[in-house]
Design a protein around this nucleic acid. Structure first.
Lengths: 230, 230
DNA sequence: ATGGAATATTCTGCATACAGCATGCAGTGC
DNA sequence: GCACTGCATGCTGTATGCAGAATATTCCAT
């Protein structure tokens, strides 16, 4: 759940020289595997073959295994003793459960954001929103989707609560696999955009209950909209 | 965050022979290290020396490293590239953040428990509560504490939401290190017990808002009570 | 032909070995 | 006397090797 810190160890930092980003192999693998799972390259329910996968990626089994353990804790894979790791398969009930928690988190984040978010942060979210509207108008679904996610993430970030951010990210990641399926029709899409507009307004007014309620409703509706596609 | 399943793989399960509990070393280590961290055997901020620790526990570095990666994802340790793992140190702000999220989760759990909890489950919680009262009256702090935790866990369990349970457990574990410090005085202790009584009543009446509110207030107060001790 | 047992194979789990990076210390130049 | 460089040491990160479990295969019996 907590993303690993790629701490930059600049011994004697000279003025403003950017310290180079060091990355351990197992860390890289965590991200790579996560992407593979989300994008479906590693199908749910399928076993992860350390030997093959390692060879395919050009790494030995050790860092690969370490990455798998990390993802197991994140809930993306399941560890079966003596049989290795399996990409976790989520039942509809699992997904509903996650959404319930995610909704609760976003509602909390909304309230906190209204309290402690800075004017700059709010402006930033507004900017993202406007950009998203552009993508909506031009029918650019992929970038619409990305900005959509970015907005939700930004609002959670505004709560300035590290634990909340981490857990939200974890859930959002798990659900990405599901949500990506959601290619809703024009009218549903319009409804989603309208909800976003509501959210932004509530945020700009720092209207806690309104934002919280809008976020909750938005998520609930988002699920209703894509439900059939799962 | 998700506890590893120690799945019992009985190849050819004969009638009702208890399948032997297979446990992988890295899994065992996860639990062991977690306990060590919670109990303070591994001090916050201290580096984890793979060589020494492994020798001390009688295991090689490989499963130890795997366990560390798992705990890193859980947020109990931090991975520093090329310098290994460090037991995470939580700032007061971190603790407050965790409690904010924990509170939100318990409130949610309370609402769900009122909805979907069975009568048996409610009776079970009541039993735990009565037992806890016994410990309170006899001044048995340790068992009081354990039952206290058990009650909160049981209520969350009643929500029948796996994700919520897992995340709640993760947070509760992280905070255990902190909460254990809480040796409050008699009057504060009495207040905590009173709050619990309130919770049970609300649960038995399936009074959603009341239970949710009581849980939230209880946690907030619990924090106020032990705050100074941190 | 089919079910089952014995065997062969494959894969996981753990240990060990090796390479590279971090850190502390001594030595040298200013 | 101070700072910087270069070396030595220790630890992390990765690869490989080996033992045991799980699974696939084959062969025999019915």
């Amino acid at each position: 759940m907590v993303r690993m810190n790629s701490v930059n160890v600049g011994a004697g930092d000279v003025s403003s020289v950017a310290p180079l980003q060091r990355t351990a192999l197992h860390d890289t693998l965590v991200n790579h595997l996560r992407d593979m799972i989300i994008e479906g390259n590693l199908a749910p329910g399928s076993r992860i073959h350390e030997g093959h996968l390692g060879e395919q990626l050009g790494v030995s089994r050790t860092p690969l295994r370490e990455a798998i353990k990390y993802l197991a804790s994140e809930g993306l894979v399941e560890l079966v003793p003596s049989r290795g790791a399996v990409v976790k398969r989520f039942s509809p009930k699992d997904v509903e459960d996650m959404l319930t928690v995610l909704q609760s988190m976003e509602e909390l984040a909304g309230r906190l954001a209204c309290e402690v978010g800075s004017a700059e942060e709010i402006a930033h979210v507004r900017a993202l929103h406007d950009e998203m509207l552009d993508k909506y108008r031009s029918g650019d679904r992929l970038n619409y989707y990305k900005l959509n996610q970015a907005i939700h993430t930004a609002i959670v970030q505004m709560a300035h609560n590290a634990t909340l951010s981490n857990m939200h990210t974890t859930l959002q990641t798990r659900l990405k696999r599901i949500r990506f399926v959601g290619h809703e029709g024009p009218e549903k899409w319009a409804a989603a955009v309208a909800e976003h507009e509501e959210m932004i307004v509530a945020l700009e007014q720092r209207n806690k209950p309104a934002l919280s309620e809008a976020l909750g409703r938005h998520l609930k509706n988002a699920w209703e909209r894509v439900k059939d596609g799962v």
